[in-house]
Computed example of a mutant assay.
Amino acid sequence: MTDKTDEQDVAFGFRRVGETEKQGLVNEVFSKVAERYDQMNDLMSAGLHRLWKDDLVSMLNPPHGQGAFSHLDVAGGTGDVAFRVLRAGGPNVRVTLADISPEMLGEGRKRAETDGLLGRCAFSVANAEALPFPDKCFDGYTIAFGIRNVTHIDKALAEAYRVLRPGGRFLCLEFSQVDVPLLDGIYDAYSFTVIPAVGKVVTGDGQPYRYLVESIRTFPRQDDFKSLIEDAGFANVTYRNLTGGVVAIHSGWRI
């Protein structure tokens, strides 16, 4: 049994909780919003999340030829990124969706079946910090709007490095720190008032969306996150701000 007196406190939004508590709290958030998650993304971002994910997949550039390409989408949930990867690449692209929330994966499986993509997908209930896959087994790794919800970012990055083959690419799309004067104040006001209110109307509960907004504010800045990716062993680490830094795409290569 873990001695809770030895636990470190970690951020859960603006609260501090025991490190063994956080994952359960995150799971509860996503189980509540799974059925309306995609609808809420459209409402919260005015549809911009679709363009951001398109940019992410364009950077991945999955191959169109006959060579096999095995891709892992972590925190893949409802399949928004995974299905883009399949449609952007050739017929031998295969994607594994990994998510710690069975409810989110269930929505992804429904969408894959509806869209005729089920035969090219695998689904795994998995923790980003302890992936159930062998070393060096994927050619690409994406995580979109998920890494800020893990308990230990360094462990998730180490796992990303472990499961990628040499030459494999890591790409992370995540909310970040606005770098445009005045936009930051407008964005803060919108985030803490409009988003929880819309969440309450659409899902019946605004609290999960207050946590999601708070988790954005406690996530490392662009340069700090870049350093964490480099510390995990990735080479040629870069990032690209989108929409004035509302989100950023970080890229790194397994060597």
Rank of each mutant, 00 (worst) to 15 (best):
P91S: 14
P91K: 13
N92T: 12
N92D: 11
N92R: 14
N92W: 06
N92E: 14
N92Q: 15
V93A: 07
V93E: 07
V93I: 10
V93Y: 04
R94T: 14
R94W: 01
R94G: 07
V95Y: 04
V95H: 11
T96R: 01
T96Q: 02
T96N: 03
T96S: 05
T96L: 02
L97T: 03
L97E: 09
L97D: 05
L97N: 13
L97R: 11
L97F: 06
L97K: 03
L97I: 14
A98E: 07
A98D: 03
A98N: 06
D99H: 13
D99G: 06
D99M: 05
D99C: 03
I100T: 11
I100N: 12
I100E: 02
I100W: 00
I100G: 02
I100V: 15
I100F: 15
I100Q: 14
I100S: 15
S101T: 09
S101A: 15
S101G: 09
S101L: 11
S101F: 08
S101E: 12
S101K: 12
S101P: 10
P102R: 13
P102I: 07
P102A: 11
E103D: 14
E103T: 12
E103R: 15
E103W: 01
E103L: 09
M104S: 07
M104G: 09
M104C: 07
M104N: 10
M104R: 10
L105G: 06
L105N: 04
L105W: 04
L105M: 02
L105P: 01
G106T: 08
G106P: 05
G106L: 03
E107K: 15
G108H: 05
G108F: 04
G108S: 05
G108A: 11
R109G: 01
K110S: 12
K110G: 00
K110V: 09
R111E: 03
R111M: 04
R111N: 07
R111D: 00
A112T: 01
A112Q: 06
E113W: 02
E113I: 08
E113R: 15
T114R: 15
T114M: 13
T114V: 11
T114E: 10
T114P: 00
T114C: 08
D115A: 15
D115C: 09
D115P: 00
D115I: 00
G116R: 09
G116T: 08
G116Q: 12
G116D: 12
G116V: 06
G116C: 07
G116I: 05
L117E: 03
L117C: 02
L117T: 03
L118H: 12
L118C: 03
L118F: 07
G119D: 10
G119I: 04
R120L: 05
R120H: 10
R120E: 09
R120W: 04
R120V: 01
C121D: 00
C121M: 10
C121Y: 02
C121E: 00
C121W: 00
C121A: 06
C121N: 02
